[in-house]
Design a protein around this nucleic acid. Structure first.
Lengths: 411, 411
DNA sequence: ATAATTAAATTAAGTAGTAAAATAAGTATA
DNA sequence: TATACTTATTTTACTACTTAATTTAATTAT
């Protein structure tokens, strides 16, 4: 945000203070003042505002040891709920979160048909949302926002799915399609970018200035976060690391190019290599159970599986090293169901390969780790996009409609 | 910069207004108000300040066609000068710029000895600065700042050369060494990053939100600019694209790793390939004349030179494509003496190779071009680091010492 | 029980932004 | 020449930050 006026400063500081109460609450005004470096006067001023509007509530006092006891405050737990939806190549996972992001209920659709129209997809999403609302006994007005995370290139501003590799769409306004069915603010982004939001707020990205997330599953995606801000590039495709060239004369990728990162480390490659050894028909890309079975043989030193996975890790490490050389991040987070399997199988080997290919100074800084949010972090991250907007835009205007009939839509 | 207080806003707006007068001056207060979106009242307020302190001067009126005639203002051309120093693997190029960055005089040292101590290097730099001061008949107090651009990883905050590939140094505080000899504020950074500053302020990066610069010469470096800010990563090595892996089993690079970008496209590789065909001893890396001769045969369709260069362009294109996939920039600027040769030889071929390896959506957005600042843009960019600091820190405190005895040092 | 001490929260004076009204400095015209 | 019109700049009233001073609400000591 550009801050040229005092009003911009107010908005920024309100958000800063609110985040502090959210993530570290209950805390006192003076605690917040110390952490945010804002003056106690300013904290009092903004807190008064937030209290009047019901965003914060008091929660008892801190025991005094001489002196006026300080009041503990926290974000009002009854403000509302968030819904996050992961749209995968073959499944839809819908989850409901309370204000503090405890998962309250969920609904899954698996084995989506292969050629799905945008309208049909949005019907399924709307149905899923209806399902979780019913099972939690909530109304639309109880939900502060719905986030969607999907494959491909997405423009969050307009709500348009610019390009979907899974279904071959171009320029479909999914946001608009869903808005016609549901009167809740909608947030939409690429799945890897949604995942990075989950990591930033609740996972391994907390407090890390520069990090990148790898989303490895059926396909390979990524996202880069710099000072709490997602890098989007000029047209929202920054971080799309899956089709980086690792071998100029390598095998042809499903994208048409040659020697892509994804072609070496994606589910497709592993299944193909595995299939080749067993002469079975190739399994569906999202077959996580089969993949787990393959990885369970990694510990067997003479297994074919171990050799296949170790070979892929050579490329995984080289790809991570390229990302490290270009971005110089402090942390790389391995996410996605297959990314987590890789990391859990042999993180040390991954690190050693990265070390081989990365600049020494950049390798020294970076910490490579596995996501601790599990394979299901995309719905959480999607919902968290709505939480970020809540932090940034809880201002006088919006506050008046909290709990009422929010018609304001982001897209 | 974090803007939590009204004083931060003032500093930011002062810088915004000053830049507008600098790059578009002479202009009127109202022009600046329109472009910066700041209110006329604020512009008047800040301009009054800058006028009183001699940073701005009036330059006549705009002819009125009814209404009060507006006053034209510009940055005072007599505020001072800047010095930029490029420290290369085998040369030192020192240039003096007036406030508007017209090159006033220069001094070159070529064929540096191969193993140079930091102290000896700084002696040579200080001598060079003395030379340009003498030939322009200026005193140290006439210079607003000195910028140094050098190979390797540099920490601009501390002034330390963290790692120098050319001379094998680690953690040398060059800034401190030079400060002992010269009482002018010193700014220091990696050469590719300095180049990107020149492109941002005076070259092909002007007005472009997301761009990357490739510095191709004896070695290969790079820098990424995002919303007018250089991306540094966690330890100042972001953008160091030269040792990105393009072929996991490729030839060994001088860095020790295998299949590096630099090993395929750097001067070393071209000379090696060329030498192989002629059985001559390998020329020194900085032999620009020989390289120009090689490239001059590119237009000959059957020449060995054309084949060598076209082969390197395959890798150059793949490397640029990787950068594009990760960063999604709007523009890629080819710089450095060898980078300019590549671009002038066959920009169309480069673009076609990039197209082959990049995501279609990212390729569609990006514009690949050749630097128009020439092969000598690093001294300019180095000096421009001081200009940026001038924009950002011309505030009450600093203004009082302009033209006087500035002892304030950045590092 | 009252006074002193301590620490939290609030109020006050100063600075810097905006929007809107007022003023300034011209040209055009009756 | 005087009035109307235009356009640039400045002043005014209001908001939101800071630091410093004050008020508030407890504990501790006499």
């Amino acid at each position: 945000m550009k801050t040229t006026t005092v009003k911009d400063v107010r908005k920024l500081n309100r958000s800063l203070i609110l985040k502090e109460f959210y993530f570290n609450g209950p805390v006192t005004r003076l605690d917040v003042s110390r952490v945010t470096k804002l003056s106690p006067a300013t904290v009092t001023n903004i807190v008064t505002d937030l209290l009047e509007n019901g965003v914060l509530v008091e929660e008892g006092n801190v025991e005094s040891s001489g002196g006026r006891p300080s009041v503990l405050l926290k974000v009002n737990p009854d403000l509302g709920y968030f819904i996050g939806v992961e749209i995968g190549e073959s499944h839809i996972q819908t989850e409901l979160f309370d204000i503090y992001f405890s998962k309250t209920t969920q609904y899954a659709i698996n084995d989506l048909e292969l050629d799905l129209s945008p309208e049909h997809l949005i019907d399924l999403v709307a149905d899923s949302i209806g399902q979780v609302l019913r099972s939690a006994n909530l109304k639309e007005t109880d939900i502060l926002g719905i986030g969607l995370g999907l494959p491909g290139i997405v423009d969050p501003e307009s709500g348009i799915s610019i390009f979907s590799p899974s279904w071959g769409w171009n320029n479909i306004n999914l946001s608009e399609l869903l808005r016609r069915k549901i009167a809740i603010p909608i947030y939409i982004d690429n799945g890897a970018k949604a995942l990075s939001v989950a990591e930033l707020l609740f996972g391994q990205g907390q407090g890390v200035d520069e990090f990148a997330v790898l989303l490895i599953g059926a396909g390979v995606g990524g996202a880069i976060v710099h000072n709490d801000l997602l890098l989007r590039g000029g047209s929202n495709s920054a971080g799309e690391i899956g089709h980086m060239t690792l071998s100029i004369d390598g095998p042809v990728c499903r994208c048409g190019s040659k020697g892509c990162f994804e072609a070496f480390i994606g589910a497709n490659h592993i299944f193909e290599e595995f299939g080749r050894t067993k002469d079975e028909p190739q399994p569906r890309l999202e077959n996580r159970e089969l993949m787990k079975k393959i990885f369970s043989n990694y510990s067997n030193p003479d297994s074919k599986e171990r050799k296949i996975i170790q070979n892929s890790i050579q490329y995984l490490g080289a790809g991570i090293a390229n990302l490290i050389n270009i971005e110089n991040p402090e942390r790389i987070i391995l996410g996605g169901w297959l990314g987590i399997l890789y990391g859990e199988a042999d993180l040390d080997l991954i690190k050693n390969v990265v070390k081989k290919y990365a600049l020494a100074q950049s390798y020294e800084l970076v910490d490579i780790c596995v996501s601790n949010l599990g394979a299901e972090a995309i719905p959480m991250g999607s919902a968290a996009m709505a939480l970020i907007d809540f932090f940034e835009n809880v201002n006088q205007e919006d506050l008046m409609v909290i709990g009422g009939n929010r018609l304001k839509q982001r897209n």
